[in-house]
Design a protein around this nucleic acid. Structure first.
Lengths: 317, 317
DNA sequence: GCAGCAAATGTTATCGATATCTTGATATCG
DNA sequence: CGATATCAAGATATCGATAACATTTGCTGC
C-alpha cells in the first residue's frame, strides 16, 4: 500500500480509503487509484487488516471427523451441513475455517470471530472446552440449556414414526440405535412417549455403529433371542437397510412381516429395494440457520436455540 | 503480551520467547512465564503473528460445492478428500480454510500459504484464476502439464474394467458418463484402448448427471434404440445402480444378460442387490497426498504430479 | 585485574493496514 | 469581507507479535 501510494503520489491512507470505496476520497481519485491498484496487481494483506480491525471475518467449524473409509461416507451429515454453512457465511463475506477436534487447539481457531460445532462435538465435555474461548458459538445437535443449539426435531422424528407404526397396527416395535448420543436419545424419547399413549412399549436394541453390518447384526440377535417384533425404527438409513437385508435372509418379508423406517432419507433410500421409508431432515436449512445465528451473535444480536421440523417420507417399507 | 510482561516484570520479547519455548530464555523463567500465561488465560493474537511472520499456516481448499439435497450426497467425493487433507494439515500445524468457488474471491484466500483445488475446480479456466494468486497450489483431478495434480489413475480404471469385460466374454460394452469431465475422459480412454486390443469397440452413452435416474434413463434409451449390448461401465456407482434397476424393469438380468461395473465403490455398493462390482479409489490417501504436496511446496521443495492406483472390486454384477 | 566471551534479557524497528486527529483549500453566508 | 462550514487529503499512532541488534551480567583464563 505504501508502494502504491508512492507511485500514485498520494498518502497510504488515501489508498486505503480509495480501495474501500470510502466517500472521503473524491470519486475521480478513487477510481484512478483503484485502477492503479488493479493494474499493479496489488493484494490486500489480510493479516494486517485483521490485526488492525481486530476481527478475522472467519468462523471456525469444528467437526468430529473420523478418517476411515466407511465412516466418512456413512456418517456424512456434518459434512452436508457444511454446504449450507459455507454458502451462508460466504454470502456475508465470511470464511470457513474447518477443523477437527484434534486440530482445534491450533492457534487459528482463536482467531475466528465465531464457532460452529458439528457432530459429536455436542458432547458436553467437548463443548465446554470451546466455551472457554469466549467466542460466539452455535452447536448442532439436541437442545440443552447451556448453549445455543440448532438441530432438527428429533423428538418429533421419534413421534411420527411411532404414530406411523400404530397406524399400521404394529404392536411390537423395536428401536435400533445408540441412545447415548443426545440426538438419538431424543428420538427414542419421542418414540417411546408416543407409543405409550397407545399402550405400546418398544424394545431397545443398542447399536453404536451406523453401519449396514450393525443393522443386520441387530436383527440376527433379535431373532436368536426369539423376541417377537413387527416393526423396526432404525436410527439411520444404513442401519435400516442392513436390517432389511438381514430380515430377508432370515425369511421375513418387509413390509409384510416387519415394517422398517430409517432416518436421514439419504438419496439412495428412495431406490433401495424395497424403497425405504425414512425420516428426512433439512440439512441445507440447518446449515444456513447455524451460520445465520453465529453471524447474528457476532453482530451482538442475542439468539435462541431453534429446532427444525422433520418429515416422515412413507415409501414401501 | 505487553500486559503479561508488565505483570511478570520482564519485557515483551522474553514473554514471546518463553511461550515459543525458545532456549534463549532460562528454563526456570520460561516455565514460570508459561505458567503465568496459562493462569491469566493469555491468548496469542494470531493475526499479529501472521502479519509479522508473513505466513498464516493456513491452506485454502477450494471446492465445487452445489448446495442441493442430492448433489451433496450423491457427489460427496470432494468432501471425502477433505478428511485426508484435514488430517494431514492439522498434524503439521496448518489449518484448512474451506471455500467454494464463489467465495474464493474473499480476501481470506489470499492470506493462505497454499491452495488445494477439488472438484470441477480442475476446469482449466477456474484453475488459471487461482494460478494468478501465485500461491503453492495442488489440484485434484486428471494430470495436465500446467499444474501439480494428484489424482487416481482413471485410465487404469477404464482399463481394468475393459479387461474384466473381455475376460467375461462380453463383446458389446457400453460406457455411460460425461467425457467432458477430464477424469472421466481418461477412464473412457483407458476403456477404449484396452478394448481395442481385443478388437472390441464400445458404445458411448453421454450422461452428465451422476444420478440414479440418469443411469436408468441411459438404459431406456439404449433399449429404445434397439442397440445390442451386454456390458455397462458406469462412471459412478449411482449411475450403475440406476442402470441395474432399469435393466431389471426392462426384463434383463444382471449379470446374466448384462454385466455392470460402477465407479467409486461407495459403501452401499457392497450391499446393493445384487452386490455391485465397482472401481475403488483411495480417497483418504489422495487427501493425504494433496496435503503433503502443498506443504512441501510451501517449504520450497519442488513437487511433481502423482497418480494413485485404483482397484477393481469384483462382486456379482 | 582485566580482556574476552557466553548466557540471559532488553530496545528498537518492523510487518501492512486503518482510526483518529490535523491541516489546508475551497465554498457558503450574513 | 471575514468567519465558519465543508471537503479532500495527510500525519501520526496503533493493532500484537517477533527479528535484529544492543546491553547487562557473570564467568573464564592469563
Amino acid at each position: 500500500m505504501a508502494d502504491l501510494a508512492k507511485v500514485a503520489g498520494v498518502s497510504k491512507i488515501t489508498i486505503s480509503r480509495a480501495l474501500s470505496d470510502s466517500p472521503l476520497v473524491q470519486r475521480e481519485t478513487r477510481e484512478r487509484l483503484q485502477a492503479l491498484a488493479h493494474e499493479l496487481g496489488y493484494k490486500l494483506n489480510v493479516s494486517a487488516r485483521n490485526l488492525r480491525l481486530r476481527r478475522s471475518h472467519t468462523v471456525a467449524v469444528i467437526v468430529e471427523m473420523k478418517p476411515s473409509h466407511d465412516r466418512t461416507m456413512l456418517d456424512p451429515y456434518p459434512l452436508i451441513l457444511l454446504g449450507g454453512i459455507s454458502q451462508e457465511l460466504t454470502a456475508h463475506g465470511y470464511s470457513v475455517l474447518l477443523t477437527t477436534r484434534q486440530g482445534a487447539t491450533a492457534a487459528a481457531v482463536q482467531a475466528a470471530d465465531g464457532l460452529i460445532l458439528l457432530g459429536q462435538g455436542s458432547r458436553q465435555d467437548a463443548v465446554r472446552r470451546f466455551d472457554k474461548l469466549g467466542l460466539p458459538m452455535v452447536v448442532w445437535g439436541a437442545p440443552g440449556d447451556e448453549h445455543i443449539v440448532v438441530g432438527s426435531d428429533n423428538e418429533q422424528g421419534g413421534r411420527v414414526v411411532a404414530e406411523h407404526f400404530i397406524r399400521l397396527g404394529r404392536r411390537n416395535p423395536v428401536f435400533v440405535g445408540n441412545p447415548n448420543h443426545p440426538e438419538i436419545f431424543e428420538r427414542l424419547n419421542g418414540f417411546v412417549a408416543a407409543l405409550a399413549k397407545h399402550g405400546v412399549k418398544p424394545l431397545l436394541i443398542r447399536r453404536d455403529e451406523f453401519t449396514l453390518a450393525s443393522g443386520g447384526d441387530a436383527m440376527h440377535s433379535l431373532m436368536d433371542r426369539g423376541v417377537p417384533f413387527d416393526a423396526v425404527f432404525a436410527c439411520s438409513d444404513l442401519l435400516a437397510m442392513g436390517a432389511i437385508r438381514a430380515l430377508n435372509t432370515l425369511g421375513c418379508t418387509v413390509p409384510g412381516d416387519v415394517s422398517v423406517v430409517g432416518y436421514d432419507d439419504m438419496p439412495l433410500a428412495a431406490s433401495f429395494l424395497p424403497p425405504l421409508s425414512s425420516v428426512r431432515q433439512d440439512w441445507q436449512e440447518g446449515g444456513t440457520l447455524l451460520a445465520r445465528k453465529v453471524l447474528a451473535l457476532i453482530g451482538d444480536q442475542p439468539q435462541q436455540s431453534e429446532t427444525l421440523p422433520v418429515e416422515l417420507i412413507v415409501r414401501e417399507t
